[in-house]
Design a binder for these strands. Structure first.
Lengths: 73, 73
DNA sequence: AAATATTTAATGTAAAACATTAAAAACTAA
DNA sequence: TTAGTTTTTAATGTTTTACATTAAATATTT
């Protein structure tokens, strides 16, 4: 699935732990983990919103569309 | 809800109609309309993925976090 | 090794994406 | 303004799944 959720960069920038992010978002840290590892098939905007608010960033800083490379032989 | 879904800009750039986008994504045009009008509380990544693929853009071109302005008196 | 942080797993529930049908409203053009 | 076309709104239903919870397994750090 070529939508990549990358929280690590912003977490590092804000020097914040997954646990803290989870707590501030108001979801279980297990779910932050699932988000990070790309094991989630969507996001609710209120979650995305809180992430952006807490990490002070834009959705584009976290979500990336990476077209799957069917070029490689 | 301060997550803004803006499809109009990219649709205009690609000179594409909502109907066509809907058809290419594989969802009803009603749902594209709901997405556009911000009446949807989340997206599935496979939908977002197809949007990005079809409109040749990134999630950040479509999704915006606009902190609600509580400053205005 | 012990303490802390993160991930994985399994199961359950509530929320909602998206479908479908139908109609209304907005554009566009004649 | 009438007809054609596109977009939006509405109402209802189904199925997917985000997120919760509990528990355990791995990292990671000290």
């Amino acid at each position: 699935m070529p939508i990549i959720v990358n929280l690590d960069v912003m977490l590092a920038k804000r020097k914040m732990r997954s646990r803290d992010l989870a707590a501030q978002i108001g979801i279980a840290e297990q779910n932050v983990s699932l988000l990070k590892s790309g094991k989630v098939k969507g996001v609710r905007f209120d979650t995305l919103e809180k992430i952006c608010e807490i990490l002070q960033c834009q959705p584009g800083d976290i979500l990336e569309y990476r077209p799957d490379d069917t070029t490689t032989p």
